[in-house]
Amino acid sequence: MSTGIAGDFLGLLAQNNLRPLAAEASTRAPEQTHATTVFAFRYRDGVLVAGDRRATAGNVIVADDVNKIIEIDRYSLLAIAGVPAMAFEMARVMQVSFAYYRRSQLQPLSLEAKVRALARLLRENLPLTLQGVGVVAPVFATVEAQGDKMVPRIYFYDPLGAQFEAVAFAASGSGSGTVRSVLSFQERFGEVKPSTMSLNRAIRFAHDTLTVASEFDSATGGMDPARTVWPVIKVLDGNGVRDVQTAEQIAARKEGA
């Protein structure tokens, strides 16, 4: 076995003098790019994870076509908010780590280990987080095997690496305050609770939630069908991760019109 702990990809990287999140902060650091609003909520058949496509640096819109919902493996999604440079690196480490463990140990990583893997990466990023550079606050959705069933779970993290399981929903990024308010209101007082929605209804609800968030937060891109800017939406259920393509989102909107 090549690494100290069997199947530990970070150990293998260290043996080869590779330090994925190593960086020195500078007081003259340039304006950082931030990925903004992402959220996850339970719907009738699983978990829906959505994010706008905007990345900003101060008052500058850096890009309006960013994918912040990243498939880590067939049963895990990472929604990133914060500095994409660090967040994308964390996602890449997780993708390779999970696959490395599964192939080398001939079994998938457990739910607890997946959840802790992200916490570990956030803690490794602690020096930059404490200096206000490279802050990442992700949402992580994955599944837990319960007998023959695969039950989706949602976790959110603070930038220091503390993990919390969300019962019904979680949100992160600059528009998350508004998103949480909408989700909380709908779950408690709405006629149709998100957790009972069909997929198409949940897609429309995600659209509407992002639209409201973009009205109160300039860094949230929302959606702009006229410019063919649609959010990224992925769903996670017992069969794994599935991308909800633009055509399916358009069809879901038409159904509700």
Binding site: M1, S2, F9, L12, L13, N16, L18, P20, R92, V93, V96, A99, Y100, R103, S104
Partner: peptide
Amino acid sequence: VRNILIDAAHLEAFT
């Protein structure tokens, strides 16, 4: 041999 191959493949994929 399996571990040699898996280590090398994943290091390559990551770097």
